[in-house]
Amino acid sequence: MRILGLLAALAGLIVLPLVSTGYVVYLANLLLTFTVLCLGMHIVIGEAGQFSLAQAAFFGIGIYTSGLANTAFGWPFPLSVLASGLVAALVGLCIGTLALRMRDIYLALATFAFGEAMQWVFLSWTSVTGGPNGLRIPPATLFGLEIVSDRQAYPVVLAITLLMIWATVLIARSRLGRAFRAVRESEVAALAMGVPVRTTKLVAFALSAFFAGVAGAMFAIYSTYIHPDSLGFQTTILVLTMVVVGGLGSISGAIGGAIVFGLISELLRQAPSYQEIIYGLILIIFMMFAPRGLFAFIGDNLKRFARA
C-alpha cells in the first residue's frame, strides 16, 4: 500500500513537466529545493534536538559557491553541487566547533548571529555576490550543455531531491541516526552508552549545513537571480515553520511540510505583513496544540473520530 503510494507520487513527479505550465514547473523546483532545506533542518532539530538558525546562510553559501564554481571554474554542475554542500558543511563545522564547546543554546545563538553576519557578508562581498544589486546566476553546465529553463532543470532537481531523501532515510535508520536521537533524548544516557555527545551534535550540525548547501546549488541550477535580502533570517524561519508544520522528528513530516507550507507561503507572497503574522501564529499554535505536526494531528483526530 505504502509502496504503491510512493510509486504513484514518483510517477506524478516524473510526468509533471509534461502536463503543466512553466510556472508550475518553477514552483515544483522551488518546493523540491525547500524539501532539501527542510531535510537539513530535520536532521539537526528533529533528529539531534539541536538548534541551528543559520539555514538561510548555508543556503546562500551554497548558491554563491555554485555560482562561482560554474563561472570562475566552469565546473560541471554535479561537481559544483557537491562543492556547495562541502563548503557549507565546512563553514558549519567551524561555527559548530566553537559554539558547541559550552552551553547547548550557544549553538542557537551563535548560528543566529552567524546568519546575520553572513547576510552582511553577502551584501558586502560585491565581487562574488553582486552586493545590493543581486547576482545574475550563470547557467549550470553539464558536458558543455547549458541548463537554461525550469523544465530542463527539473529532472536534475528532482534527482538530487530523491538522492537527498534517500540519504536522510539511510542516516535515520543507521547507527548515526540512533546516536542523534540518543543525544536528543538524554545526553547523560548517551554518554554512558559510549556515544560521543559533542562530536555527534557537530556531525548533525555539519550534515544539516551540507543539505542547505546542496539546496543552494539546486536553486542555482534553475534560478537566474539571487538577492541577499532573500537569504536572511526570514528564510530560516520559513524553513523552520515548514518542519514544524510537517512535524518535528519525522522525515515524511519534513517533506510534507515543505510541500504543503511551501504552497501556502507562495500564496502569501503578496502580503508580507500578513505573511509574518501567519508564520508566527502557525509556529505558536502548532507548538501549543500540535507539537507533532499537522499530519500526526490529523491522524490522531481521525483515530479518535473513528473510535467515537
Binding site: 532539530i45 534536538g49 538548534f51 542557537a108 524561519i237 523552520l240 514544524v244 518535528l248 505583513s273 500578513y274 505573511q275 509574518e276 503574522i277 501567519i278 508564520y279 508566527g280 501564529l281 502557525i282 509556529l283 505558536i284 507548538m287 501549543m288 507539537p291
Partner: peptide, 17 residues
C-alpha cells in the same frame, strides 16, 4: 526546543502586527 520555537513565533507575530 518547542518553547524556543514559540518565542520565535511571537517575534514574527509582533513584527507583522
Amino acid at each position: 526546543v518547542n518553547l524556543v520555537i514559540a518565542t520565535l513565533g511571537l517575534s514574527y507575530v509582533l513584527k507583522g502586527l
